[in-house]
Simulated scan of single mutants.
Amino acid sequence: MKRSFLLPLLTMLLALVSTTGSAGALRPASLNDDTIVVRLPNQATMTLYVKNKAQLRELRNYKLDSLIVLLDTYIAQAEKASKNSTSEQVTMEFYPAKDQPGQQVPEQIRITMHNEPGKPAGRTARTGDHVDVTLGRVFGVSVDENTDGSGNDRVSVRVGSSAKSDSVRNAERKARQEERANRAVHSNFDIDLGLNALTNQATAPGDFRPDLRPAASRYISLNWHYDIRLGRKGSPLYLRTGPELAFNNYMLDNVYQFRSANGVTSVTLPDAGRNLTKSKLAVSSINLPLMPMLSFRDKKGHDAFRIGAGGFVGYRLGAHTKIKYEEGGSTKKDKDRGSYNLEDFQYGVQGTIGIRSIDLFAKYNLNNTFKDNRGPQANTISFGISLLN
Rank of each mutant, 00 (worst) to 15 (best):
A175G: 12
F296T: 01
P106M: 00
S85T: 03
S330P: 03
P289W: 01
A197Q: 08
T35M: 09
G328Y: 05
V155Q: 09
A76G: 00
S4L: 11
F94G: 04
L10D: 01
N275K: 04
E145V: 13
N367D: 11
S22N: 05
R274P: 02
K335S: 11
T380S: 15
D132V: 02
L230I: 00
L288M: 15
H114Q: 11
A15D: 14
V37F: 01
D253I: 06
T86P: 00
G348Q: 10
H302T: 05
Y364G: 04
M251D: 14
S235N: 11
E343L: 07
F208Y: 10
R240C: 00
A319C: 09
Y226K: 06
L222C: 03
N196F: 11
F296C: 02
V155F: 07
K300A: 14
L71C: 02
H302G: 09
I385C: 04
D344V: 14
G118T: 08
K98I: 12
S386P: 07
Y219L: 03
R232N: 10
S142K: 15
I36T: 04
Y340P: 02
L26P: 00
L239S: 07
T11I: 02
T35D: 05
T331Q: 13
T112M: 10
T20R: 10
S87R: 03
G102T: 04
K119N: 04
R110W: 00
G273D: 06
K278M: 11
V313M: 11
T47R: 07
G118A: 08
Y95S: 09
K119L: 12
D190L: 12
S284E: 02
E178P: 00
I358M: 04
L317V: 15
A121T: 06
R126Q: 08
G310F: 09
N61P: 00
M12E: 03
R60T: 13
Q104C: 07
R213E: 04
K83P: 01
T321P: 12
D303H: 05
D34C: 08
E179K: 14
Y95F: 15
N84A: 05
T112F: 02
M92A: 06
